[in-house]
Computed example of a mutant assay.
Amino acid sequence: MAEKHPLNIIKMKKMKTDGVPLSMLTAYDYPSALLAEEAGVDLILVGDSLGNVVLGYDTTLPVTIDDMVYHTRSVKRGAQNTFIIADMPFMTYHGSVDETLRGVRRLMQEGQAHAVKMEGGLEICAAVSAVVAAGVPVLGHIGLTPQSVNMIGGYRIQGKDAKDAQRLIDEAKALEAAGAFGIVLELVTEEVAAAISKAVSIPTIGIGAGRYCDGQVLVFHDVLRYASPYREKRFVKTYADVGSLIREGISSYVREVKDRSFPAEEHVFNADETVLESLYGGAGKGAK
Rank of each mutant, 00 (worst) to 15 (best):
E110R: 13
E99L: 13
E110T: 11
V128W: 01
A130Y: 11
M88H: 01
G120P: 05
E110F: 15
H71K: 13
Q112C: 15
T92I: 01
S96V: 08
Y70L: 12
R106H: 00
T72I: 13
C125F: 12
I85V: 10
Q112D: 13
G120I: 01
S96R: 00
M108C: 08
G121K: 06
K76L: 11
P89H: 02
K76S: 13
T64K: 12
K76M: 14
V75K: 10
R106A: 08
A113E: 13
V128P: 02
G121H: 07
V116K: 00
Q109Y: 12
L107W: 10
R106L: 12
L122I: 09
T82P: 09
L101Y: 14
T72V: 08
F90S: 09
D66N: 13
M108A: 15
E123V: 00
R106W: 07
D87L: 06
S96W: 02
I124L: 01
M68N: 02
R102G: 08
A130N: 15
R77F: 11
R77I: 10
I124S: 06
H94W: 09
M108F: 14
N81K: 07
I124F: 07
V63C: 04
V116E: 03
Y70R: 14
M118N: 02
E119T: 06
M68E: 01
G78P: 02
G111A: 11
R102H: 15
T82I: 07
T100M: 05
L122R: 06
H71L: 07
E99H: 14
Q112T: 05
R106Q: 08
D87Q: 08
A113M: 05
D66Q: 03
S129N: 11
A127I: 07
V97A: 11
G103A: 09
E123F: 03
T64W: 15
R73V: 03
T64S: 15
H94T: 05
R77C: 05
C125Q: 15
L101K: 15
G78V: 01
R105K: 15
A127N: 10
P62T: 11
V131Y: 05
L107N: 09
M91C: 11
S74I: 02
K76E: 14
G121Y: 13
E123P: 00
I84Y: 00
Q80V: 15
E119L: 07
I84F: 04
E110C: 10
K76A: 15
L107Y: 12
F90M: 09
M118V: 00
T64N: 10
S96I: 12
